[in-house]
Amino acid sequence: MEFFPGCMIHNRYPGIEKSIYYVFSVLGIEISPLEGSSCCPAPSITKSVSEEMWREIAERNLNLSDETIMTACNGCFTTLLEVGSEIGKDVRHFAEFLYRDVGIEEIRKKVSKKLNLRLAAHYGCHFFRPAEKKGVDSAERPKILDELIKAIGAESVNYRTKNMCCGGGGGVRAAATEVARELLEMKLEGLKEAEVDAIVVICPLCLFQFDTGQKELEKEGKVFGIPAIHYAQLLAIAMGMDVDEAGFEAHEIITQELYEKLLMGES
């Protein structure tokens, strides 16, 4: 299996990659970096310029390997899965692979430090949509991430804006930043009521929107202070990885309280 990092993981949140290698070594599954891979490229915005460009760059990436390609980003997953299905390549997303191939029972067995946290699952639109191309989980009633959260001993808390988009997709963050920020604020309002320790994502672009976006909102005097982390980081820590290997230096919003809970585990 080869790991496709994409720009967001390779160039912004390498702690996600570190965590994935840790998780796979605990699970006894071989995985190595897909060398020379570029931007996937991001589906909606690249298709907004040229569909041929989108397909050709994706094909170049896919043709670097004959093995299964593993992603941990909803954008990379969309691009590589859609183009990969046209040219016979096997593409997986970390979260659905864990759920469907490894299984919740097996994950539970490998958890050495239960994390007794209140967590808010955020799937990200492109994990399951468009459904006929993805076929991984129900878009209206998804359950994969909720189950994965429970497997590490945490609670997956329901919240009012659970099904809402983070607001960062489709090029809106770059094309109209104020719209992305306003959507994020709506999403966070619902999250605030639920009083969670953190938002759990399975896409680094959602992570970026939650994390950097909150920093931007703070400049407008709107403070939420809700950390966002990728499920890979959480699972690796629950499987015994040192918290300082999770690359939280790259995150803007990490509370001392969360850090300590991750350090201690269930007490």
């Binding site: 949509r129 468009p130 997709g169």
Partner: peptide, 10 residues
């Protein structure tokens, strides 16, 4: 350009 391509409508 304001569409976040969430595909909910579609």
């Amino acid at each position: 350009w304001f569409c976040v391509t969430c595909y909910a409508c579609q």
